[in-house]
Design a protein around this nucleic acid. Structure first.
Lengths: 219, 219, 219, 219
DNA sequence: CATGAATGAGCGTTCATTCAT
DNA sequence: GATGAATGAACGCTCATTCAT
């Protein structure tokens, strides 16, 4: 945003701000605009014109920052996946670690925070990235597969500890992932006012934990 | 007019019927091929050429059966939604009705049967229809909203009967819908061998029912 | 129209009417329908479907009577030109011939009678045939050139007799042809009620004759 | 935003103006080429490829200057009608005005000058515009109707002054319009050498004036 | 670096014509 | 002869990308 301020005020500290910072700022600005365009129209119905018009740049300038329309889409997705990966931390089960349930809750909360904060990106991932082409679908699928792996390993660990009822862990992992995805989609896609974050997290966790716990009545 | 009179003569009807049967069969064949093409490439990356090449017909022939590329896509989606609507029956709670749980199970089973039977169509709905354009997205969303309404009403009823724990019914309904969608996507999207239908139904139901039940340990 | 009756009543005198008569009648019927279609839409905007739909025949049947869409258009035009040629008789100036002015008047009258009787064909010739392609344009042009030749020869004859003022005969011949064409176009193209045939003939002749006569005040 | 500010800066205006001049020139060039193509082939037989090939530009470039094939045709026609309207000035009959006959002559001369100068455009109007579709036909007809109105009013005025013989003014106006149109068509359509402009104007006027004058022998 | 006019491959669609029944 | 489903060449138009300025 500093960069955007710079762009809007060319006379502000021109010597202080380096070239590459201006460049990075402009790149961010284009990404920001592209996100809105892709979110609204999808990849195919969005044109490079839509993006450059919204960004207030020339068509050629676009290609100084991104090699193709596909490139900017991939950048957007990669940023999102990166952010999601950071927010989903493996449950640490060492003796000195925080309560695993609290860690789980924090994961769900961090994910939903991003969902609420950047709904356009979530919409793009849910509705456009999977259907773009086989490579994009593969990228998304790989991400989900890693999440599924994490969930599955947690389930297996819980089963070993007697905290989770025995089950087909891959299927149940899918169920758990599905609850979060669907709520995320519901939150970002409808125009109605959504419940507070706390409530969302609470309901999702209660539903999922009871679904897998050996002691569901305690939750 | 001589010819028309002959055509209107009843003794030509068998051949006319034969014609329309051929027509219907060819239409189905084109739909079948289009389903595979759309499933693999998505709407935008699939060309009419792809469809007619696969169907072994001329480009012009396509337009004898469908008014546009969009038309055949919509036909495919409408057929799927129609089929899904038929397979999802509202839970009947009259005194002489079958066990509600059995009805619920039958619904889930019928849906998953279709998922297994026609994975391409499911892929199209999940990955391509939602992102096609606003009209298509609206159609899909409306369908899900109706399903969500059904689930929510069932939850509310269960709460009144003391069978379902009090909860934010819309959120929990989303969770339930999400479990089924995610499992459906998982089943259709991976190349690995999927568990038998019974196991899928069993696991989904157990997870979801425990998630909402006041007596989860009994499930 | 006989043909239409025959077509609509196949049981009427089937043995009396020969095959070729039925064929000729059907051909005429198709020509009749095509005339209306071409007149309204022009050659390019009219489709073979438009013609066969209006004629109540199958698409393939059309090609049993005409080799192409272009063929039926040419037939229509040839019929019109034939008819026009018959109605435009060279002025006979033999000693026993009728008054040349009466012959001239009869020519104009016969042409305008056709114009009023078959306005669609006139519209096609004026607005569509000339612009169809170079061959069609050439056909029309050749027809007009012959008419111009006739007028020019009449003018030259009149000059020799001292009845027509000396002039550039080709240009004046164009002027005379132009008066008739424009009135014909005006008559067929507007939806207002047109003056009676007699008045049209009278005004055209008076205008043209005064334009060329050495004794214009007598006309 | 820097760039936009620069663009809005006055010192860049010269180059911007230069751009638009290049643009206008190229637009004119495409119009010029399209005129030749349409004149030779007509609207339907002319393809956008024909135009861009002749203009030496890429297919896409065409659409930077015109929204459609129809658009460029309409532009051509509108330019012609505009030019014709400017060349046909209403006869001014005020006390200090030039001789009405001279004004009339000047009108005919200006029109024929355009005819000789831009024969392709005239051919397009005569042979292609009228038959293109109902909208185009209406545009042309409206133009002619206005011309007919002008002629008719002049005739009525002449009758009141005793200079023009009483007549059916609409019919006679058509005759007059017809003389000019036919001569124009004859001049542009034949490959023979045409008479000098003066002769054309002279003959048309003499023919028409004698046709309507109360004193034809004086002309 | 920024610009935006120019490019041209590629697509959806139409419709005159054919031919098996 | 009559039918009409099938054909496929041809066309108008779009838009991601390039490159001279």
């Amino acid at each position: 945003m500093v960069s955007i301020a710079v762009i809007e005020n060319p006379w502000t500290e021109p010597s202080v701000v380096g070239q590459s910072e201006v460049r990075a700022a402009r790149r961010k600005h284009i990404l920001y605009c592209a996100k809105q365009v892709f979110s609204k129209k999808g990849f195919h119905n969005a044109s490079v014109s839509d993006i450059v018009d919204r960004a207030g740049i020339a068509r050629g300038t676009f290609y100084l920052y991104f090699t193709s329309k596909r490139d900017i889409f991939d950048s957007l997705m990669e940023d999102l996946l990166q952010e999601l990966r950071q927010r989903i931390k493996p449950i640490d089960i060492g003796p000195d670690s925080p309560n695993p349930l609290d860690q789980l809750k924090a994961n769900v909360r961090r994910v939903l925070e991003l969902v609420i904060q950047d709904p356009e990106l979530i919409q793009i991932m849910f509705h456009h990235a999977a259907g773009l082409d086989q490579r994009s679908a593969e990228t998304v699928r790989t991400f989900y597969d890693r999440v599924l792996d994490m969930i599955e390993r947690s389930l297996e660990h819980g089963i070993r500890l007697g905290l989770v009822r025995p089950c087909q862990t891959r299927i149940v992992a899918s169920c758990i992932l599905g609850t979060i995805k669907e709520v995320a989609d519901w939150v970002t896609g409808r125009r109605r006012t959504v419940p507070p974050l706390d409530v969302l997290v609470e309901e999702i966790l209660r539903f999922g934990l009871r679904g897998v716990s050996t002691q569901p009545q305690d939750i």
